[in-house]
Deep mutational scan, measured.
Amino acid sequence: WVPDSEAPNCMNCQVKFTFTKRRHHCRACGKVFCGVCCNRKCKLQYLEKEARVCVVCYETIS
């Protein structure tokens, strides 16, 4: 899990986070992404309901 303080930009597209461009943690890899790069949901083994995942993890999992 990457702390918010260590991620000033999206770890995929590099967009800078602001008050309106929020950070989202991928529940699969723990990296920090913008809403566009972390907009998929899928079922993870260790969680009961679907969770937010990044586009890279989504392609790997599904």
Rank of each mutant, 00 (worst) to 15 (best):
C57K: 01
L47C: 10
C54W: 00
A28V: 05
N12P: 00
C42P: 08
V53D: 03
H25W: 04
C37D: 02
T20V: 08
R52M: 12
P3F: 15
Q45D: 15
Q45Y: 06
F17K: 02
L44D: 04
E50Q: 08
E6G: 09
E59Q: 08
T20D: 02
D4K: 04
V15L: 11
A51N: 09
V55D: 14
F19S: 15
C10F: 00
P8D: 11
C57D: 03
S62V: 15
V15D: 06
R27L: 02
Y46I: 10
V15A: 11
G30P: 03
V55N: 14
A28F: 03
V55W: 07
S5V: 06
N9I: 08
A28S: 11
C37W: 00
K49N: 08
R52D: 05
Q45K: 06
C29G: 00
E6M: 07
K21M: 05
P3C: 14
N39Y: 12
C26H: 00
C38D: 02
C10N: 01
V53G: 05
I61T: 14
C29T: 01
K16D: 11
K43D: 15
D4T: 11
F19Y: 12
H25F: 04
C42T: 14
P8R: 13
I61E: 15
C37E: 02
C42G: 13
C37V: 01
C37Q: 02
F33Y: 11
N9C: 14
F17G: 03
P3Q: 08
Q14R: 06
P8Y: 08
R40Q: 14
E50N: 04
V55F: 09
C29M: 01
V53W: 04
G35H: 10
V2F: 09
N39V: 05
T18G: 08
R40P: 06
H24K: 03
V56E: 12
A7P: 01
M11W: 09
Y46V: 12
K16P: 12
K43E: 14
K43S: 14
E6I: 12
R22M: 10
Q45N: 11
G30Q: 05
F33A: 08
K21T: 11
C42Y: 11
G30N: 13
N12Q: 10
A28Q: 10
C29N: 02
C54E: 02
C13R: 00
G30Y: 09
V15K: 07
C38E: 02
T18R: 07
C57F: 00
A51T: 10
S62Y: 11
V15W: 05
